[in-house]
Design a protein around this nucleic acid. Structure first.
Lengths: 203, 203
DNA sequence: ATGTAGTTTAACCAAACGGTCAAAATTAAA
DNA sequence: TTTAATTTTGACCGTTTGGTTAAACTACAT
C-alpha cells in the first residue's frame, strides 16, 4: 500500500530527524531511531540503505529549510531598514520553533564540510548582491554598505540571530542569576537586534 | 621517573585534545588518541581511567581558556570604547590561533549542558555588571547601556566574535565565489566589529 | 482460493568499541 | 646486584554497533 509506505517512511524520517538533531550523527543510534519510529531496526535499512544515507536525507532537508529562511527577505518590496527588521523577526521566530537547528547544523558542517558544499555552492552571492544593489542603490550609499563590507555585515546579522541559539546552553546558565528567561530574551531580541544593526550601519 | 610521567601524560592530553576537537566526544576513538600519542591504548586507561574522564579533563581546560579570554577586558583601565576595541582584537586573535574551539565547545555544551554548568556558574554576572558600572558610570549613561540591555549587548558582542569561527565551513564556501579569504576577512573583522558595535550603542 | 509483490519482523553477524589483565620492560631504591 | 615499584605492552573480553537474511505477514490481482 503506497499510503502505508509514505506513512512508514515519513515516520522513520521524523524519528531520525529528532534523534539526529538531539544526538548528532555520531551520537545517534539506529536502534534509537527505530524505537522512536515504533518499528523494527531492519526496516530502517529497508527504506534508507545505510545510516549515512538516512542522515544525509535529514541533513539536506534541515539545511534547506534553514537557508530558505534567509531568501524571502530579498523578495519583499520594502526599504532596507524594513528588510532588516523583517529578517530578524522572521528568522528568530523560525529559530524559536526550531531552537536546536543552529547547533546541529554548525556541528555537522564542522565535522563534514564537504556535505554542505553542494548545497551552499548553489547560492550565487554575487547575483544576490547585484539584486540588492539594484533594489536599494540609494539606500546602500546612504549607509556604509559596499561590496567590500557586505560579507562583514551579512555575517554579523547572521551571527546576532543564530548565535544565541547555538550558545543557548551557556546563556541560560548565565541568565539564571539575573532572573532572565531565555525565551523572553529571545523575544526582546527581535527588535533589539534590528535597532542595533540599523544604528550600526548609519553614517 | 616523574619527568617521563609528565611527558607521557602530557602527550596523551595533547593527542586527546586534538582528536576530541576534531571529532567531538562521540566521534573520537580511544585507539585514535593512542595512535596520535604514539602509545598503547591501555596506557590511556592507566593515566585517565575512562574516556569520559579524559574528555572532561580536555573539555574543562579548553572551556577555561575560552572564558578566561573574556576576563582581562574588565581589568584594563581604559575607556569603554577602547575596551570594546581591545576585546575584539584580543579575542579574535586568540580564536585565529584556535579556530576550532568555538565549534567544539558549542557542540559539546549542546550535547551535555550539565558539563559546563559548574564552570559557568562560578561567573557572577551581577558582580561583573557592578564592576563595569563603577568603572564606566558616565559612559554607560552616554551610551544606551542599562542593566536590562546588557545581556543583549554582551551576547551580540560574543556572537560577532565567535560565530564566524563556528560557521567557518559555511562562510568559506560562500566567500569562494567572491574571492575572499577567510583569514583576511577575520583580520579585517577585528576593526569592523569594534566600529560596528560602538556605532550601534551610541545615542 | 491462490499466487505475487511489497512490507515487516526476529534472529543473527562481523567489526569496532571501551575497557581489563597479567606479564614484560623500565626505573628507582636497597 | 638484587629487590621493589612503576610504567608500558599485547592479548583478550563483553558489549554495542551498523548492517544482513530468511522467513512471516499483508494487500491485492487473478
Amino acid at each position: 500500500m503506497t499510503e502505508n509506505d509514505k506513512q512508514t517512511e515519513e515516520k522513520i524520517f521524523e524519528a531520525a530527524t529528532d534523534v539526529f538533531i538531539e544526538k548528532g550523527m555520531d551520537g545517534a543510534r539506529m536502534q534509537d531511531i527505530a524505537d522512536h519510529a515504533g518499528i523494527n531496526k531492519a526496516l530502517l535499512h529497508y527504506y534508507y540503505r545505510t545510516k549515512d544515507r538516512l542522515f544525509n536525507a535529514v541533513f539536506e532537508k534541515i539545511a534547506g529549510q534553514m537557508f530558505k529562511k534567509f531568501a524571502p527577505v530579498f523578495d519583499e518590496n520594502i526599504s532596507l531598514e524594513e528588510k532588516i527588521r523583517f529578517f530578524f523577526k522572521e528568522h528568530i521566530t523560525f529559530l524559536q520553533k526550531n531552537p536546536r537547528l543552529p547547533g546541529f547544523l554548525l556541528n555537522e558542517i564542522n565535522h563534514n564540510p564537504a556535505r554542505i558544499k553542494k548545497l551552499i555552492q548553489q547560492i550565487d552571492v554575487n547575483k544576490l548582491w547585484m539584486t540588492l544593489e539594484a533594489q536599494h542603490k540609494d539606500e546602500l550609499k546612504k549607509y556604509n554598505i559596499t561590496r567590500e563590507t557586505m560579507p562583514q555585515l551579512m555575517s554579523s546579522i547572521a551571527a546576532i540571530s543564530v548565535f544565541p541559539f547555538a550558545a543557548r546552553g551557556i546563556l541560560e546558565v548565565l541568565f539564571e542569576k539575573m532572573n532572565i528567561n531565555f525565551n523572553d530574551y529571545m523575544e526582546e531580541r527581535k527588535e533589539y537586534a534590528a535597532d542595533f544593526v540599523i544604528k550600526a550601519i548609519k553614517k
